[in-house]
Design a protein around this nucleic acid. Structure first.
Lengths: 215, 215
DNA sequence: AGCCTGTCGACCAGGGTGGTCAATATTAAT
DNA sequence: ATTAATATTGACCACCCTGGTCGACAGGCT
């Protein structure tokens, strides 16, 4: 594993990408080290020279991914924005940038969280839990509740808004599946997304909150 | 396959359940006929006596599931309810009943739709597309648009409402995962669900629409 | 020359695959 | 009771893939 860190960046990244993709697609058990080495363009032996076992590799990836998400996503969120929906808008943008920088990490963490079946090394488990905790704070902490209508339960409004945003993102993902990320002009989709957010504001905020659009 | 239909209901159902579960959990490729026969409590040979191949079995299950959904779910939806949210409420209830009657069918169709990779027999493909079409009509057709606020795009409101409902259902599913369906008292969850629906009405409907709650 | 460090891929034992088939057990027909 | 037809089984097949090992070899350094 120290051996691995001595490689040139490029080769490291190629192996990381291959492994992240394989685990993301098949989960831990059904992921194949053979496919990983083929995809990474290295000999079988090297993988077990760098990492002493499949599990060792997996845990390395987990830690790597968690660190990546914290550094390139969580730490870049502006928590001074007190408008809940604006905050989520900003969060979506930062997340998108991080995803563009390394799509595989997010895919990996997706299946990692779903199939976190076996026992991880404790320090990774801890990092994982810390990430979940800060991820939550990042969204809910320090938001201005006074923007919300008085006649709805704010906690429920939170959830409805999050579900709506997740719904849009899932639909978009599904619609664009198969197209290469680089060939897509995302601007119209961002516009559409903002329109949904405006509707959410109209629906869940008090009348007169924020900037009204008198077009 | 005619052989299969000659079996007593009970045995048929046991085999169907075993197979549906296996495919639901692992998808077509990674599903194991060995596990199916073990779970169903029959000899390996019988499976290939009833169905001539794994693929044959899979297509039979697909058709069976589609028929089940149409008969026990779609055909029971009351399309005269013009209130969009009330219709979705009613739809959720009917779906829940159908799911209670045969959970495996819905799980199977879930992964079936996601991983509909290889070419199905054309008549099944047709049934599948017809199901999607009527599923859509079932939700959107003949709804009273005048209930919605004038200042939001109704099409977008439709989507936001659906995403919200899906979000609630997913969260509930996740929260209850692992518990046996029969041991759960669902009433409080229905109550909670209705509260969310009321918020959606307050948010997306005109003031004064429907029955107001003057508590 | 030796020695260290990388690198490879053939190879291993083990396990799982969909599918077959000779051997039975069961039932029906005569 | 005998035969014929039908159900049912599980050992077996050839094949594929698994995580991991290890001898061979390459190149740089001393």
């Amino acid at each position: 594993m120290e051996k691995f860190k001595g490689l040139d960046e490029e080769k490291q990244q190629k192996i990381l990408d291959a492994a992240l993709m394989e685990f993301a697609e098949h989960g831990y058990e059904k992921a194949s080290t053979n496919r990983i080495v083929k995809e990474a363009g290295i000999g079988k032996g090297m993988l077990f020279y760098y990492f002493k076992s499949k599990k060792d590799l997996y845990e390395f990836l987990a830690e790597y991914s968690l660190d990546f998400v914290v550094e390139k996503y969580f730490s870049r969120i502006d928590m001074t924005e007190a408008d809940f929906i604006e905050r989520l808008k900003h969060t979506s943008q930062v997340k998108f940038e991080a995803q563009t920088e390394n799509k595989n990490v997010f895919n990996f963490l997706g299946t990692f969280m779903l199939t976190a079946d076996f026992k991880l090394a404790p320090h990774i488990q801890k990092k994982y839990e810390a990430m979940q905790k800060t991820g939550n704070a990042m969204i809910y902490e320090n938001v201005d509740l006074s923007l919300f209508r008085d006649d709805v339960d704010v906690q429920k409004a939170f959830k409805l808004i999050r579900w709506s945003i997740e719904g849009y993102q899932n639909e978009l993902l599904h619609k664009l599946q198969g197209q290469s990320m680089t060939s897509i002009d995302f601007n119209p989709y961002w516009e559409e997304f903002y329109e949904y957010l405006e509707i959410l504001k109209k629906s869940f905020y008090k009348k007169g909150s924020g900037i009204d659009d008198y077009s």
